[in-house]
């Protein structure tokens, strides 16, 4: 077991004027270097989790520790340095007037000297493949490009953890793919801890571990494989089943020899091929 970079212990949270808990006694650890997907339908409490992790809201009960620091009003600015956030709406997080200004914004806030800033802006934009767009203005960029710039803005600050709060939900398929590809590459080359909050199961399928949220509670946790065996239960939770699983199920019900629900199309094709040629 690797060290936990985030420890959430018995956290509950209620929005002002609401009778129900948005989060109800949630405990979870996020491990160093893992990709964790937090899934759930809209209103399941997953976005509240993001707000708590970033100190935008404080839990009514329980505690949050980030990289060994207890998250309090005094430490919030230190913990924010450890968690970079990418939000849902590509437009509403683009502060700078051009791509490079936007990436530099966080660095400016942290008082990084100019020479170093120039360097960091350059390298982080290279990592998200937006280095050709230095002087581009936001309204000339696609949603996917804006989100990549937002990721570069996070990378420039070199946090331990990057938290994507439904970062792909407003994008077209191409933009979504761009962003997911970027995250995959980062994950491989940088050893970052990735937390993605999403209702897109395709995105979640790429993660190391999935947490399913429902009604403010941690409903289930497991590897994608384990989670997708939940099957109809996922649909009841307002989520979807990935295509290969749906296909496996249907084939099985037709009596075609398949011993489990496959997570990828390749595995399923291979299985079909084996059982087909064996008989």
């Amino acid at each position: 077991m690797t060290d936990a970079v985030v420890r959430i212990e018995n956290v509950s949270f209620k929005y002002d004027g609401q009778s129900d808990f948005a989060l109800n006694n949630v405990s979870l650890h996020i491990n160093d270097g893992e990709w964790l997907a937090i899934v759930g339908h809209n209103g399941s409490g997953k976005s509240t989790m993001a707000k708590l992790l970033n100190g935008l809201q404080t839990p009514s009960e329980g505690s949050i520790q980030i990289c060994g620091i207890e998250l309090t009003e005094e430490t919030v600015w230190d913990t924010r340095k450890q968690i970079g956030m990418v939000f849902q709406n590509p437009d509403n997080q683009f502060v700078g007037s051009t791509v490079q200004d936007d990436v530099a914004f966080g660095l400016e806030n942290n008082g990084v000297p100019r020479e170093e800033m120039v360097q960091r802006v350059k390298t982080s934009l290279e990592k998200v493949k937006m280095d050709k767009f230095l002087d581009q203005e936001p309204h000339h960029l696609s949603g996917g490009q804006k989100q990549r710039v937002a990721i570069a803005g996070v990378l420039a600050l070199r946090p331990k953890i990057i938290l994507l709060d439904e970062a792909t939900s407003m994008l077209d398929p191409r933009g979504r793919e761009e962003v997911l590809q970027t995250i995959r590459e980062l994950k491989e080359s940088n050893q970052m801890t990735v937390v993605s909050i999403t209702h897109d199961l395709e995105e979640a399928a790429k993660a190391d571990r999935i947490i399913v949220m429902n009604k403010g509670q941690l409903y289930r946790e497991g590897t994608p494989e384990e989670i997708f065996q939940m099957d109809e239960e996922l649909v009841e939770l307002g989520l979807d089943i990935p295509f290969p699983v749906k296909m496996s199920k249907l084939l099985k019900s037709k009596g075609i020899p398949i011993n489990k629900h496959y997570l990828t199309e390749e595995e399923l094709v291979a299985q079909l091929w084996t059982s087909h040629s064996n008989k």
Binding site: N54, L56, W77, R80, K81, G84, M85, F87, V95, Q100, D101, A104, F105, G106, L107, E108, N109, N110, G111, V112, P113, R114, M117, V118, V121, G153, L157
Partner: peptide, 15 residues
């Protein structure tokens, strides 16, 4: 902005 560490002009550098 807050998430990216913005807390006023003090201690800021310029790009």
């Amino acid at each position: 902005m807050e998430a990216r560490g913005y807390r006023g002009g003090e201690g800021r550098t310029k790009y």
